[in-house]
Each structure stands twice: as structure tokens, then as C-alpha cells.
Design a protein around this nucleic acid. Structure first.
Length: 509
RNA sequence: GGUGCUAUCGUCUAGUGGCCUAGGACAACGGCCUCUCACGCCGUAAACCCCGGUUCGACUCCGGGUAGCACUACCA
């Protein structure tokens, strides 16, 4: 059966979008685009207790920043969703779920259960590995054990109840996974999952997910590996609804793991190791916490995409740099690895370095200007672009440019001690005095002309190029670093250069 | 505990029975370049989890171990 490709990304608005979620969204997007399919965004807000204000907007903004475009559902230009299958927020779909829960109840695939959370808890404490299933449901309080009229009476009286899925025992359930192949799980280990919660009159993930994917005509469910254990339940649900024919194909993605140690990557790991685990900075309105983001850290979206795409997927060959279009062209689910990938932040930095080198100097200047202004510097964009061209190859991020270029805009007020110790010699003041006189007389300030004046002078005096130039550098920069010296004098100009030498001569002895 | 998934350099991975004395990238280390710091370039070190089996031949296939991970909620 060849259905049009339609995938969905269905996050819960419970906080900032985790980087693992971003990768899931990315793989969905790549798959959709490659197959001329549709990418849908649905908000799974069926847990009213975990709802975080602003999280949904955050998700939309993050995907937009990364260039993951949404064709249907909630998106930037349609905050309430666009498409023929709305609403796209599960909390707005209560009536729809009511209808389908009833269908399951009527067909005998689900039943009412009156056990309270406390009773269940007690049961779990009492019986090790207690599971609500074929073995135990007969000893619980539900519509299978209660007389029909009492069930009716309880419901009418307003007793709290949940609806549970009736799982038939002793059956091998087959799940065909596009990445892992055939996964077989016996129904005995499945419990009678709650499909409908009493607490907030909303379905659980399992029910809502199946109903929505069916109604929204999803062809492929590409999601994290944490869902693999419940995939058989989902298959059973499709069957119970009579939707097996159009059941989506499944692909369960490997998890993103901690850079060190074991376990999946968490927000805490980012805090602990000093890197963001969220695409954008997030201000949690619920608990007041602030989490750093890739965008605010100076990452380019292309770099994040490239980095993430390769964490769990690779083609044959040695290509490392991929544009979004190349990823779309080359992506394939059967080349997604089966094992989890440790999150290697260092490689992420390298990707950003590569993309930064690819940018034009004036683009970088535009990005850097606000940072300069923050430092109280109003510079000519052309000069900024010029100094960036001299220094960009030594940084990974735009904000790092500051420490590379600051001396172009601010004369050194103090001099790096280590540099002085190593490069400021006993003769340096005398050398600089002589150099000063030489440069004062210099009319042509071009790099070539300066070189033609200074080098022969050093040679004739036998001072040593390194000795003089490094001392000169300390005068101009304040430390032993920076681009080629004539590139620096070129930007500084004659007067500023001379002033810096004079100042150094006053301060340094 | 139960169930499932997974297993190549420190990390991300290439490898689909002979092309493998296992390739690339990040990180590490060394060298070159050089007025400095970087970048860049060149190079070095670094891996097939273990044990069986199948086969003329296993990193590749099968079985068993082991280890890691995930799930095991009226959370998603």
C-alpha cells in the first residue's frame, strides 16, 4: 500500500524542547521532504499537570530558527494550526476522544475501572511487580467484575473512573520497525493501560496518539526509542479500532546519551558540563529557571542541524558537512543507527567553526555589531568586517570574536605579564624608541611600505626580527597574540600606532 | 525483578562474508608554517565486548554469555 508520506512531530509543552526532540523533529522533516510528504506539528498537551506556559511558543520558535518547516498543524504563521484535520492541540479534541473511547467500550476492547490511585498504590506495595492485566483484573474493581447495574450506578453517581484497554493474553504482537526490523512482544507483559484519565477528563498519550495519527492520516511515526516498549500496545489499539490497514509504519530512533558515563542526555548534564541542551534560551515561567540555548550561545542553525543529523545517522562515504538540502537528498531511515549516540559537544563546536568560516565577513560583522555596541564601541561596519576577516579563523563563535579583536578598538591599558616576561627584553625600550622615530618619518603607511622600511632597519642593526616585532606587538596589542603585525598597523593607522608605542614606552621600562 | 533494544578507536561513525595490515571526522599528541597567538597543513597513537558455531574464509551470518540503555504511572 502506497500512501502519501505524512509525518508528525508531537511534543508536549512541558518545558523547553530538548535537543533529542529537535533531532527527532529533524529526522521527521528530512524524511517528509525527501518523499514530498507533509510535516505536521501537533501539541500533545493531555497532561494538564505538567503544562508549562510558553513552552508551545518556544517549540514553534525553535523549529523555525532551525529551518524545520511545518506544513500542517501548529506553526509560526498559524498559531492555532492550519490544515483540514484540526484542532492540532490535543486539549481541544476532547469530544473526538470521547467518541473513540466509547467505540472501544462498546466493542468490548476497553472497560471501566474504579480503583483509586491510592488503591493501586497499595496493591503495588503489597504485591511485587503488580500489573493490571489478565491475571489481576478479575480481582480489581471494574466493569468486568462488578454487576452491570452497579457499574451504571457508579458512573451516574459521578464516581471517578478510568477507562482501561483490555489486552488479550498469550499473544505475540509483531511490530515492524523501519530501523530495527521485526520486534515481537508477548501480550502477557503488557498491562491494561489507562486510556482515559479521571483526573482531567482527557485521554492518555496512547489513546490520543493513535486516534490523532489515524485521523490526521499519518503514514510514518518516527519517534524516540523510549516508545518502542509501548509500540505493541499501539498496534493492538489500531487493531481494536479496526484501523490496521492504514496503521502508520514505525521507526524508533536511538537515544541521545550523556557525553560521559551512561544514560540519556538530560538538562542537568548540560549544566554540569557547560553546554546547552536546548535550541533556544528558555525562561521557565513555572519554576522561574533559565536554561541556555544554542542560539544564544552563538551557534548557527545550520551547524546545529548538521551536528544533530550526524548523531545517529550517516551515509556511506566520508562527508561531514551537509546542507539541509543535502541531508534531505541523502537521508534514509535504514541508515539510522540502532544504538544510542553519546552527545559529543566538542564536535558541535567544530561544526560551528566550519560554518563560521563559510560566512561572509560583512555577514559576520552584522552579527557582531550588537556585541561591540554592548561593549560601548561604535565602529564602522567596514572596519569591523576587516578585523573579522583577520581573526575569524581562530574562533568557533561570533561572541568569541571580541577577545580577538578588542585591541583594534581599545588601546591596551595594561600589558599581559606572561607576554612581557617572554617578549619584552632589556633592549626593547631602546628598540621601540628607534622604531618610533623610524615610523614617525614614514609617509607611506601601507603594509608593504612599512615592511620595506622596518625589516632592513632590523637587519642592519642586527636586533633580530622576533625581538623587535614581538615588542612592537606588545605595544599595539598588549599581549603576544593577534594577526600579522602589518595587518594591525593597517587598521590602526599611523597616529594610533605611534600613540600606542609612545604609551608603552611611558609605562614599560 | 520482568520485557525489549543495542554492542567497531575516548567520541560520532564507514564497513552488508574475501576489497580490512579495519577507512573518515572530533578530541589527544608530535611536527611544519611563523614576529606572537591561532588557523591551516602533515603525521602519530587509538577499536571489531567475550565464547562457541556455520564457512575454504568472519567485524560482517547463527547461538550463548556479558555489558549498556530504554520501558515497566490516571507522564509523555
Amino acid at each position: 500500500m502506497n500512501r502519501p508520506v505524512k509525518v508528525r512531530f508531537a511534543p508536549s509543552p512541558t518545558g523547553a524542547l530538548h535537543i533529542g526532540g529537535v533531532r527527532t523533529a529533524l529526522y521527521n522533516y528530512l524524511f517528509a521532504r525527501q518523499n514530498n510528504g507533509v510535516m505536521l506539528l501537533r501539541i500533545e498537551d493531555t497532561d494538564s499537570t505538567r503544562f508549562v506556559p510558553g513552552a508551545e511558543q518556544y517549540i514553534i520558535e525553535a523549529l523555525d530558527w532551525l529551518g524545520i518547516k511545518i506544513d500542517e498543524g501548529i506553526c509560526m504563521d498559524a498559531p492555532d494550526g492550519k490544515g483540514a484535520h484540526g484542532p492540532y492541540r490535543q486539549s481541544k479534541r476532547r469530544e473526538i476522544y470521547h467518541k473513540y473511547v466509547k467505540q472501544l467500550l462498546d466493542s468490548g476492547n476497553a472497560y471501566y475501572a474504579f480503583d483509586t490511585p491510592e488503591e493501586l498504590e497499595a496493591k503495588r506495595a503489597e504485591i511485587a511487580n503488580f500489573q493490571y492485566d489478565a491475571r489481576t483484573r478479575s480481582s480489581m474493581v471494574n466493569s468486568l467484575t462488578l454487576p452491570a447495574d452497579e457499574v451504571k450506578a457508579r458512573i451516574e453517581r459521578g464516581d471517578k473512573y478510568v477507562v482501561r484497554f483490555l489486552v488479550q493474553p498469550d499473544e505475540d504482537v509483531h511490530v515492524h520497525d523501519l530501523i530495527r526490523g521485526e520486534v515481537i512482544i508477548n501480550s502477557n507483559i503488557l498491562d491494561d493501560k489507562v486510556l482515559y484519565k479521571s483526573a482531567d477528563d482527557l485521554p492518555t498519550y496512547h489513546l490520543a496518539n493513535i486516534v490523532d495519527d489515524h485521523l490526521m492520516e499519518i503514514s510514518h511515526v518516527i519517534r524516540g526509542e523510549e516508545w518502542l516498549p509501548s509500540a505493541p500496545l499501539h498496534v493492538l489499539l489500531y487493531r481494536a479500532f479496526g484501523w490496521e490497514e492504514t496503521m502508520p509504519q514505525f521507526a524508533h530512533l536511538p537515544l541521545l546519551l550523556k557525553p560521559d558515563g551512561n544514560g540519556k542526555l538530560s538538562k542537568r548534564d548540560g549544566d554540569r558540563l557547560g553546554f546547552p541542551v536546548f535550541p533556544l534560551e528558555f525562561h521557565n515561567q513555572k519554576d522561574g529557571s533559565v536554561s541556555s540555548g544554542y542560539r544564544e550561545s552563538g551557534y548557527f542553525p545550520e551547524a546545529v542541524i548538521n551536528f544533530l543529523a550526524l548523531l545517529g545517522w550517516h551515509t556511506t562515504g566520508d562527508q561531514e558537512m551537509f546542507t539541509m538540502q543535502e541531508l534531505i537528498d541523502q537521508f534514509s531511515l535504514d541508515r539510522v543507527s540502532k544504538s544510542g549516540a553519546k552527545f559529543d559537544y566538542e564536535k558541535g563546536k567544530w561544526f560551528n567553526h566550519q560554518y563560521l568560516q563559510l560566512k561572509k565577513d560583512d555577514q559576520l560583522a552584522t552579527l557582531f555589531m550588537p556585541i561591540l555596541q554592548e561593549k560601548g564601541i561604535n565602529a564602522d561596519p567596514a572596519i569591523v568586517a576587516k578585523v573579522i576577516s583577520l581573526t575569524k579563523d581562530r574562533v568557533n563563535f561570533v561572541p568569541e570574536l571580541w577577545e580577538q579583536v578588542n585591541f583594534f578598538f581599545q588601546a591596551p591599558t595594561e600589558y599581559d605579564e606572561k607576554s612581557l616576561k617572554k617578549r619584552w627584553k632589556e633592549d626593547s625600550p631602546r628598540h621601540m624608541q628607534e622604531l618610533l622615530s623610524l615610523l614617525e618619518a614614514q609617509s607611506d603607511w601601507s603594509a608593504d611600505a612599512l615592511d620595506a622600511t622596518v625589516m632592513p632597519w632590523i637587519e642592519s642593526k642586527e636586533y633580530g626580527v622576533g625581538i623587535v616585532m614581538n615588542a612592537f606587538r606588545i605595544c599595539l596589542v598588549g599581549a603576544a597574540r593577534g594577526p600579522h603585525i602589518w595587518a594591525i598597523t593597517d587598521v590602526l593607522g599611523k597616529e594610533e600606532t605611534l600613540n600606542r608605542v609612545r604609551h608603552a614606552l611611558e609605562v614599560l621600562q
